[in-house]
């Protein structure tokens, strides 16, 4: 059986990738943000996972409104970065963890989930940026990836409770996988931000800190909140935080909060991360 070596929650703000591309990660604006990720990178380097499961949303780059999947799972052998309007970024393609992906799809359907199964598809900053934050800019990524897309764009978006249930199936899939791969689970998105409407620019530092402090061992409140609660507390796009629940649900009931980091704003977003380990 494969092994979950830890769970990461992290922002995936596109400006993070842009800051790296422009070489301004050491500027006064960005340095405090990136510095907070150094221990996360060290942790990852030490843990040496073989596979990263990345839960993220597409941002109108890969899926159009003609066909919106509630959940999609990648089973491709590779995933290229998609052109988001600025040209394709020069970062390596991501190799797919195809065997684990198909196994996960089998488990999902058995457990009454209804994924869109994707074999030829590109990935946007939602997957790219978390990989860069925790693995840097290697020549080749040191892990294979299993991408899980969650619709957070067009309503109805899935409920936080459904995301939680998916995390349980993810754990079952990893633990029943015939192999000895080491797997890290990365729930991405958020923290608080709002890009649309006259409340644009809304950031809720207090709610963000509460989230980072309590997602490890007081997650019940977050698991039980409604979609409306998420939008209200974290902003319309901050509702992306429901994707951290997939990661959290795949971990043990009690976990070790190894590290956390918060910085606001990154672009228009409260940004940060946690690293969790099972005890």
């Amino acid at each position: 059986m494969a092994k979950i070596i830890g769970g990461v929650g992290t922002s995936h703000v596109p400006s993070i990738g842009a800051a790296l591309d422009k070489g301004i990660a050491d500027s006064p604006d960005w340095k405090p943000f990136f510095d907070g990720y150094i221990p996360g990178k060290e942790w990852m380097a030490e843990k040496k996972p073989d596979i990263a499961v990345v839960i993220f949303n597409d941002h109108g780059n890969t899926f159009f409104l003609d066909r919106v999947p509630t959940f999609a799972v990648g089973v491709a052998d590779h995933y290229d970065p998609v052109d988001e309007g600025y040209g394709r970024r020069s970062i390596p393609s991501f190799e797919g963890a195809t065997d684990l992906s198909w196994h996960f799809v089998d488990k999902l359907v058995e457990n009454h989930f209804d994924p869109l199964v994707c074999r030829e598809i590109e990935v946007d900053h939602g997957l790219q940026v978390p990989m860069e934050l925790f693995f840097g800019r290697p020549e080749n990524w040191p892990v294979k990836v299993l991408p899980i897309w969650v619709n957070t764009i067009q309503y109805p978006i899935p409920t936080p409770q459904r995301c939680w249930e998916m995390g349980k199936v993810l754990r079952e899939a990893i633990e029943s996988f015939p192999g000895d791969e080491r797997v890290v689970i990365m729930g991405t998105g958020g923290l608080s931000h709002q890009l649309q409407g006259s409340r644009a620019g809304f950031i809720n530092r207090e709610a963000d800190e509460d989230w980072l402090n309590n997602i490890a061992n007081n997650y019940e409140k977050f698991r039980d909140m409604s979609r409306e609660d998420y939008v209200e507390q974290f902003g319309s796009e901050g509702a992306e935080l429901i994707m951290w629940l997939v990661m959290r649900a795949a971990m043990d009931d009690k976990v070790d909060l190894k590290m956390k980091h918060y910085h606001a704003p990154a672009s228009m977003t409260g940004a940060g991360m946690v690293v969790l380990e099972n005890l």
């Binding site: 309503y155 409407g197 409306e228 939008v231």
Partner: peptide, 8 residues
């Protein structure tokens, strides 16, 4: 939610 259009 005040000042918050949901994309429905």
């Amino acid at each position: 939610i005040p000042e918050t259009p949901l994309f429905d």
